[in-house]
Design a protein around this nucleic acid. Structure first.
Length: 272
DNA sequence: AGGCAAACCTGTAAGC
DNA sequence: TGCTTACAGGTTTGCC
């Protein structure tokens, strides 16, 4: 579910609830996530005041005043919701973080692909290691993509989804960026011109910014801290639209499989 | 080294 | 209606 725009929308909706507030306890109901939840390690960080709510790639980081942090990755179906202390456990609620004043944060994840990890001050995590630049930040652009692609035969869409190349881009936005730039998703990365990399970098930034403004994409599971879904699924040009007419030329959108993932594209507007 | 398929787990939708 | 199959936003592992 959650690529960069979804995690950014979660971060923004969570920050007003958490900034400056104290987390006073944790209750793990079912810690069998992608990485087993270590309840004792989480409890050892608490109570603690939240210093900041940050995002890197698809990872949410709740920075604590002590210098420790809570790392949350939503996997495919995770949610992190603010709820009143009176709310009952629902199916697939995995753990609760208790906030001073009574509310709580509940981590909910049907597929269990997510993670909630306690990070000691200065401690890293494999999800944060070796990441490329943030596509909406400094240090990202066509020149960076061109450099990273030099000599690579990998198709451009899976190339964009490689977090070591650029952080936070998943299947939906890789498809949408290729369409917006007029680049065929199967074109070998190492063969694109500098001008086309510039177009692709600009298209990626535009697509991500548009999705954040729309509250992200909610295909099924995604919701922000208030439980609100996003609307970008109504604005995708190719993702999930196999057989529908292309918004630019009217030809039917096609689907192909790359690295085991569905790719949607327009065979006329997107060229090698 | 680079790139791919499969695996992790569960729910839903489509097909028969 | 009920069973079976395919597929889903991410990441890691292991194989070629």
């Amino acid at each position: 579910m959650p690529e960069l725009p979804e995690v950014e929308c979660l971060r923004r909706s969570l920050a007003p609830h958490l900034a400056g507030r104290r987390i006073v306890g944790v209750t793990v109901r079912d810690g069998r996530l992608r990485e087993p939840v270590r309840e004792a390690a989480l409890a050892a960080l608490l109570p603690a005041r939240v210093a900041a709510v940050e995002r890197r790639a698809k990872v949410l980081l709740v920075r604590l005043a002590s210098g420790a942090a809570l790392l949350v990755h939503l996997g495919m179906s995770g949610r992190l919701l603010v709820e009143p202390a009176s709310a009952p456990w629902r199916p697939h609620d995995r753990l609760r973080l208790h906030l001073e004043g009574g509310d709580r944060l509940v981590y909910h994840d049907p597929r269990r692909f997510g993670r909630v990890v306690a990070l000691a001050p200065g401690e890293g995590h494999p999800l944060l290691a070796g990441l490329g630049p943030e596509p909406l930040g400094e240090g990202f652009g066509g020149a960076h993509l061109a450099r990273a692609a030099r000599g690579r035969r990998r198709p451009v869409k899976p190339f964009l989804m490689d977090g070591r190349v650029v952080a936070g881009v998943g299947n939906i936005y890789a498809c949408e960026a290729c369409f917006a730039a007029g680049i065929h998703p199967a074109a070998p990365a190492g063969r694109l011109s500098a001008a086309r990399w510039e177009r692709l970098a600009a298209a990626l930034r535009a697509v991500l910014a548009e999705s954040i403004a729309a509250g992200g994409t909610t295909l099924r599971d995604f919701a922000d801290a208030e439980g609100r879904g996003g609307l970008y699924q109504l604005r995708t040009r190719v993702y999930g639209r196999e057989g529908e007419p292309c918004v630019a030329c009217g030809r039917p959108i096609r689907r192909l499989t790359q690295s085991g993932r569905s790719t949607f594209y327009c065979p006329r507007c997107q060229r090698w």
